[in-house]
């Protein structure tokens, strides 16, 4: 069986700057894959490459064995529908209400009747526990609720692969924990593959089947939680323990 997500020699550059080089890895069906790494190293870019939002400069990205950038438009659309994403900046449509945000993907790309859409919207909002905010606008609800709404919208097309870009950013520890519990519960219910970015190590350990770190343009697959904690690479060691001194901070004042 082919992998759910597969990268073959992927390179990503913006203008002349190479951000990610020669990335090769596979993610399997039902897996919970967590990406960690310092800010600005390209975690979000890696996720957007998987999601078909960015096109790799070189190499191939396969989703369930199909190359999204080398297929018919209708096959590409079918692949896109298998994926949902919670964006780092939420990406909620601020001119639409909470309910309309969840309805938007269904209205745009499915043939569902309005009645069916309303039923689904209520169901998803119930799942993430913000049904009471149905009529409000995204800027009228709290940060935690915005994350929940983002999750509900990501689920709207019932995708098999869900990307979570920093789902706990800016949330208090308790709310973070509730969001992660929600992500895990939904993963179990829907039996989906999830790929999440987080720099909250406790949440990362709680979610991950397998972890990887993005640094210096590379993707270091660090293995399961135990393996990651025992990893030998000094960059991984420094990062997961949050040491001030080490290879990651070599060029900053802290080491000088």
């Amino acid at each position: 069986m082919s992998a759910t997500v597969e990268f073959q020699n992927v390179q990503m550059s913006f203008e002349e700057d190479v951000l990610l080089k020669n990335i090769n890895f596979q993610i399997h069906k039902g897996e919970k894959f967590v990406l960690i790494g310092p800010s600005g190293e390209g975690k979000s870019v890696l996720l957007k490459l998987m999601a078909g939002i960015l096109k790799p400069s070189e190499g191939k990205i396969l989703i369930e064995g199909h190359d999204m950038w080398n297929c018919l438009p209708k096959d590409r659309l079918a692949l896109l529908r298998k994926m949902g994403m919670l964006f780092q900046k939420n990406a909620l449509f601020d001119s639409l209400t909470v309910g309309e945000n969840v309805a938007f993907p269904m209205r745009e790309i499915t043939q569902k009747s309005e009645q069916e859409i309303q039923k689904q919207v209520k169901y998803f909002l119930q799942e993430v526990d913000i049904l009471h905010a149905l009529e409000l606008f995204p800027d009228e609800i709290s940060g935690g609720m915005q994350k929940r709404l983002g999750i509900a919208r990501a689920l709207a097309l019932e995708p098999g692969i869900i990307f979570y870009d920093d789902p706990t950013a800016g949330l208090d520890p308790i709310t973070s924990r509730m969001i992660v519990e929600l992500i895990l519960r939904l993963q179990k219910e829907l039996n989906s593959t999830i790929i999440a970015i987080t720099n909250d190590m406790n949440r990362a350990y709680q979610m991950a089947d397998r972890m990887a770190m993005v640094v210096d343009g590379e993707l270091i697959i660090t293995g399961n939680v135990g393996e990651t904690q025992q990893h030998k690479d000094p960059r991984v060691v420094q990062f997961i323990h949050g040491y001030l001194k080490g290879p990651l901070t070599e060029h900053t004042e802290v080491n000088a």
Binding site: L80, M85, K89, A91, L92, F93, D94, P105
Partner: peptide, 10 residues
């Protein structure tokens, strides 16, 4: 705010 990315993803 990545809304354009959200459109592309659909």
């Amino acid at each position: 705010t990545e809304q354009i990315d959200a459109l592309k993803m659909l």
